[in-house]
Design a protein around this nucleic acid. Structure first.
Lengths: 335, 335
DNA sequence: TTGAAAGCGGTACCAG
DNA sequence: CTGGTACCGCTTTCAA
C-alpha cells in the first residue's frame, strides 16, 4: 500500500511531481514522468481517494439513495442516472435506506464528503430534518418522487393526483361502476394523493360504491389479499380495481386468478409505475394496464441539474412530470 | 460547513474533546459534553467522512460492484448483503460497472480507500489485472459467480456444469429428444460451462439432434429470436429449450407464443437463476421452470466472510454452491 | 520544471 | 478528564 511519498522516493523526485504525473498535469520533464510511472507500476500504487477528497473537497460522485435497491421500481432510474452521470465524468454510489426502519448504520453520515451531493428516490429515504441539515450546509440535494417542502432542494415529482384521476375516469368511461382502490400500507404523500383522486372521481360521478384496501406491497401480501377478496368482490359486483403500483397489481391479479376470478373478463386491474417487470406468479397473467411514469426523463433531469449545480448554478427547481395511461390486457370494457 | 475546530472554539474546549464526544467516548465531563453537543447542533456540524477515513484507515463499508444494478438478477444478492452487513454495523456502496464497456469513470479508483474491500458480482465487473492489483495490495476481495484464479481472493461460485447437466437430463427423462440450448452472447466461463454440460449430455445419450444459439439477453433480442426461430423449431421437431438465464427464457417464450407455439404444450422451456421476476410480456406466460441458485446463502456467506477478513482472519476460500431444479409450468413431458 | 511546506478535517497518543 | 500535537495521503501555492 504504497503512498505518494514512496513513489517520490522510488522515482527520485518530489511528491509534488508525483502528484502532477498522477493528475496528468503538464510541466513535468518527460524522463521524470516515465520514472514516476514506472515507480507507480512497480509499487502497485493507487491514490488514496479519501486523502484526495479531503484535499480537493470535490469527489465527482453522486450519492443516490433509494429504499430498496432490489426493487424493480428503481431499475430505470438507476440505469439512466448511471449512464448520464458517466458521460459527464461523474460516478454514482447507490445505497439502500429506509429511514422508517431501525438501522445500525447511518448512510448519510457515511456518505458525507464522499459525494458531491445527493439524489433521494422515494419518500422515507430521508427525513425532513435530515434534508434541512443537508440543504442548510450547502449540499446539492435532489428528491425524486416526493417534496418535503425544504428550501434549496430540487424536487422532481409526478402528477399523482391527475394521473390516478384520469385512470379512474377511464375505467368509468369503459362502463365500470364498482371500482376498488388498493393502496400501499405505508402512509406517504403519494399514497394519499392517489387515493384522494380515486375518491374524488367516485364522488364526481356519484357512484354509490367505493372501497379502499391498504396492503404492504413489498411482500406477497397482495397475492393473499387477492385470494381473500375474491369472493367478496364477486358478491359486491366489483368489475375494476386500481392499485397503488404494479407490484401490488400483479400480486393481486395472481391471487384473484387463483380463486377463479378471471382478469380482465371478470375484473379489470390497473397498476401504476410501468416498471416493465413482474414477479413469477402462480398463474398466467395478462399484460398489465398501468400508469406509466417517465422515469428516464426524470433521471436525466436530475443528473443534468445536479451537474449544473456543481458548476455553481444556484437555482433549484420543482419539476413535475406527467404520467400516461398505458392500456394493455388487464383491462376491458364492462358490459 | 463547520469543522471540528469551529465546534471546539464554539464550545470552548479542545478538538480532542469534540472528537471524543462525536465518537461517544467516555471520559468527558457531562457539562462539556452538553456544550459540545449544543455547538454541533447550532453550527450544523457533520463530521467529514473523508478526513475520518484518512485518519482511521477504516471505513466500515463494503464496495459492491455489479454489472447492471437494475438487473433483477442482483436483487436478492443486494437485499441480503444490505441486511447482513447492517447487522454488523457495516454499510455498503453499490456501483454499476461493466469492464467491457468503455466508461468515463474508473469506479475502482474512486472506491479506493472509501471502502474496506470489494464484492464483485458477475464476470466482467473486474479484470484479472485489476483483481491482482487489489489482492496484492492487501484489499479484501470477494468474487461471486466467477473465479479468475487470482491469489488471495475468495470466490463464491455455483455448480454451473452439474446444474445444467442435471436439467438437460431431466428433460430427456421427460421424453424430450430434440433439445436446443440458448446461450448468452457474451463469452464467459459461466456460459461455456453451461453449454458444455448441454453438449456432454447430448453426447452421452447419443441424441442425434442438437442446436445452440447465442443471444444478447439484456435487450429484447430474446423475444425476437423466439419469433424468428418458431417455424424452424417446429420443422425440426424441437420439444424443449434450455436457456442461459431466466430473462432469456422469458423473452424467448414470449416470442414463441406470439408465433403460435404454445409453452409447454408444444415446447418446454427452462431458465436459469430463478430471479423471481419477469418482464412484462406481450402474452400470458406460464410460470417458468428454472434452475435456482441460492443467492441468499451466497450473499450471507460473502458478507460474513468479509467481516471475518476485516477482523484479521487471513484465510480465503473457494466456496461452491449447489443449484436446484425447480419445476413449474413451462415444462412438461413429451409424448 | 521542480521542490518545500502549508493545509484539508479528523484521530489518538502522551502529558498533565 | 482535558489539551497539545503528530500524523493520515494528497493537492497546491510559492519560490527557486
Amino acid at each position: 500500500m504504497a503512498n505518494i511519498f514512496d513513489i517520490a522516493r522510488e522515482a527520485g523526485v518530489s511528491r509534488s511531481t508525483v502528484s502532477r504525473v498522477i493528475n496528468n498535469q503538464p510541466n513535468v520533464k518527460y524522463e521524470k514522468r516515465i520514472k514516476v510511472k514506472e515507480a507507480i507500476k512497480r509499487l502497485n500504487f493507487t491514490p488514496n481517494a479519501a486523502a484526495r477528497m479531503l484535499a480537493l473537497k470535490k469527489t465527482y460522485t453522486i450519492g443516490v439513495v433509494v429504499k430498496e435497491l432490489g426493487d424493480v421500481f428503481y431499475a430505470s432510474f438507476i440505469h439512466n442516472i448511471h449512464y448520464i452521470a458517466d458521460s459527464y465524468g461523474y460516478g454514482a454510489f447507490y445505497c439502500n435506506r429506509n429511514s422508517t426502519i431501525q438501522s445500525e448504520v447511518n448512510y448519510l453520515e457515511r456518505l458525507n464528503k464522499q459525494v458531491d451531493g445527493y439524489i433521494f428516490i422515494g419518500e422515507k429515504t430521508v427525513s425532513k430534518e435530515e434534508l434541512e441539515v443537508l440543504a442548510r450546509s450547502g449540499e446539492i440535494v435532489i428528491t425524486i418522487g416526493f417534496d418535503l417542502g425544504v428550501e434549496n432542494v430540487t424536487t422532481i415529482t409526478i402528477d399523482n393526483y391527475e394521473a390516478t384521476y384520469g385512470a379512474v375516469e377511464k375505467l368509468i368511461e369503459q362502463g365500470h361502476r364498482n371500482i376498488v382502490y388498493i393502496n400501499a400500507e405505508e402512509e406517504t404523500v403519494e399514497s394519499s394523493l392517489r387515493q384522494s383522486a380515486y375518491e374524488d372521481v367516485i364522488n364526481k360521478y356519484e357512484l354509490n360504491y367505493s372501497r379502499v384496501e391498504r396492503i404492504d406491497y413489498l411482500s406477497d401480501s397482495a397475492y393473499n389479499l387477492g385470494t381473500e377478496l375474491a369472493d367478496d368482490l364477486k358478491k359486491e359486483k366489483v368489475t375494476a380495481i386500481i392499485c397503488f403500483n404494479d407490484t401490488l397489481a400483479t400480486g393481486l391479479t395472481d391471487g384473484l386468478i387463483t380463486k377463479g376470478v378471471s382478469v380482465p373478463e371478470d375484473i379489470s386491474v390497473v397498476g401504476f409505475d410501468d416498471v416493465a417487470v413482474r414477479r413469477i406468479t402462480s398463474n398466467n397473467l395478462p399484460a398489465l394496464t398501468t400508469i406509466s411514469q417517465p422515469q428516464q426523463r426524470m433521471a436525466e433531469f436530475a443528473v443534468r441539474h445536479f451537474i449544473k449545480r456543481v458548476d455553481d448554478d444556484q437555482h433549484h427547481y420543482h419539476e413535475k412530470f406527467k404520467c400516461v395511461y398505458v392500456e394493455r390486457e388487464s383491462t376491458k370494457k364492462s358490459l
